[in-house]
Amino acid sequence: MLGSFAVLRKQSLLGDAISHAALPGIAISFLITGAKDSHTLLLGALVSGLIGTFWIRGIITKTHLKSDTALGLILSLFFGFGMLLLTFIQKQPNANQAGLDKYLFGQAATLVESDVWMMAIVTGICLFVLLLFWKEFKILLFDKDYAKTLGFNTKLIDILITSFIVLAIVLGLQTVGVVLMSAMLLAPAAAARQWTNSLATMVVLAAIFGAFSGVFGTAISASQNNLSTGPVIVLVAAVFVLISFIFSPSRGLLFKQIRFIKNRRDLELHKTLAFMYHIAESHADITHPHEIKILNGFQGYTKGTLKKLVEKNYVTLKGSTWSLTNEGFESALNLYNQLSKNDE
């Protein structure tokens, strides 16, 4: 859901950076508290995720670096630091350490009821804020400078959106893990973008895709032994993306190709008919037969088009000759008039 905003801001990699940036937070909060309950750890993740995000923003605004450079820098820096801390923790004689690496790839099995409740509540809050500031979010995404001239505090809206993206990512960490979280954020949004041209529909669709990937993914991983849930969920989401890329009616590859071919065929047909029309025109009797051979010099002409023209009853064939029917002549005349009208 919130992924829609990340995708539309062309900040898709931000999710990746945030989730990686959350890792040291998890490790540090474990080191400090020694606790292993997910709430404490996720709080640490939230804090370090936010720090990472605002560093990225700082780097982008204060230096000449491009945003992808800043993202990559922070991502690897935080992730490296997090891994360092993790190995450090693993060397410690502490029986509690065992669960931490779960956050790398996530494990839905570690979720307990209170985690699920927390997710539900935070999702509810996100939804509420989203509905409340819908208009503000939309205008910021589309045209930031303009939003500023209208008197909106764009920085505030920006921080609000970013914070919620961070929150959503941190919550997903437990299930999908640091490495794959960004896919969970972006895949449903990317898939949803293919199906709709309305922001509202896109956000709803993304939420549905996300939820379905979660449910299917969990179901598949539960029915097969020992398949870890996170990767399966991400794969299901990826399937959604793939299907959307290929089959979406307006933006999908398949229909684009079909439309392209159909258009080409139609044009070929029209052109051939027009060519025949010009030949037929020179005779007093329009249905006068002509050799098929003369058509061979014409680019768009194929046996297929001729067959189609016969099917449409525009042309009749007799031996090696063709002749235009009255119907075909009129249709060609209409086309001709239409074309010259469009030219005006």
């Binding site: 539309l8 208009k135 503000e136 939309k138 205008i139 995404l141 589309f142 045209d143 303009y146 939003a147 001239t149 209208l150 008197g151 909106f152 973008r193 709709t196 041209n197 309305s198 922001l199 529909t201 896109m202």
Partner: peptide
Amino acid sequence: DFPTTALDVVTMGTYG
């Protein structure tokens, strides 16, 4: 390429 309509963009003028 932002997913929105012409009317929607113009309506943004009233947001202020």
